[in-house]
């Protein structure tokens, strides 16, 4: 892998982590979905770049799947959902932004330390790539923990999955069938969650997950 292509791959993977951080401090749902679309676009670019440098044609399919599903269909559907639910201007935040950003930085540092330790035998790019991918996964999980709205939890879950795809694209020789399976299971999960969002809304008049806890007779 040449110097230039390594730098570009590094840039794109690092960009994904950066966009993950951007998602953490978006407190309006509309803006959050915009950022998520950007996340998916960066992922598409990163995977496509991998396809070109590795000469692995099937990764173009992965990139196409990421573009079509992650950057077009899912954000589109989520836009429709929040508009129909009338929550596209809602502001929500559980833990303060600063604290969450600090925690996110800690997670990135942790994943870099772990990955560089564990993968001493791999190529330099694979090590960086895996460290970034793990950061994206952890940041997605962090977002799910700090958010309260079901829609933003869905977004957190989807960005987590983007991290998985980044890792899969960086590892050479990952068979296409695995990626397609992952992509479809995510799609199914999205459909199920979407259906549930409306069910929750129907029943409780809100998509705030606190309502579920109150329904179970628990106080937070």
């Amino acid at each position: 892998m040449g110097h230039m292509s390594f730098d570009i791959a590094h840039l794109l993977a690092g960009g994904l982590v950066l966009v993950s951080f951007m998602m953490i401090y978006q407190d309006r749902l509309h803006a959050l979905l915009n950022t998520f679309t950007l996340h998916a676009l960066v992922l598409t670019a990163a995977v496509a770049w991998q396809a070109w440098t590795q000469g692995a044609d099937h990764l173009y399919i992965t990139a196409a799947i990421a573009l079509i599903f992650k950057a077009i269909i899912i954000p589109g559907a989520l836009y429709r959902i929040i508009r129909r639910l009338g929550i596209h201007r809602e502001v929500e935040q559980v833990v303060g932004t600063g604290l969450t950003m600090l925690a996110g930085m800690g997670l990135v540092a942790l994943s870099i330390v772990v990955m560089l330790d564990v993968t001493t035998k791999a190529t330099a790019f694979a090590r960086e790539d895996l460290a970034f991918a793990l950061s994206v996964v952890l940041l997605g999980l962090l977002m799910m923990v700090t958010r309260r709205n079901a829609v933003s939890q869905v977004v957190g879950f989807m960005s987590l999955e983007n991290g998985l795809i980044l890792a899969a694209a960086g590892a050479k020789g990952m068979p296409l069938v695995v990626e397609i399976t992952v992509a479809f299971s995510i799609l199914i999960a999205f459909i199920v969650i979407g259906v549930f969002l409306f069910r929750i809304r129907e029943r409780f008049d809100t998509v705030d997950l606190g309502a579920l806890d109150r329904f179970r007779g628990e106080m937070r």
Partner: peptide, 23 residues
């Protein structure tokens, strides 16, 4: 009887603690 977010926080916490042990 935890809330969904607390379960997720448990998942994150156990993942992070395992990673810390690993590092």
């Amino acid at each position: 009887f935890l809330s969904i977010r607390r379960y997720l926080a448990l998942v994150l916490a156990s993942l992070v603690s395992l990673l810390v042990v690993l590092s």
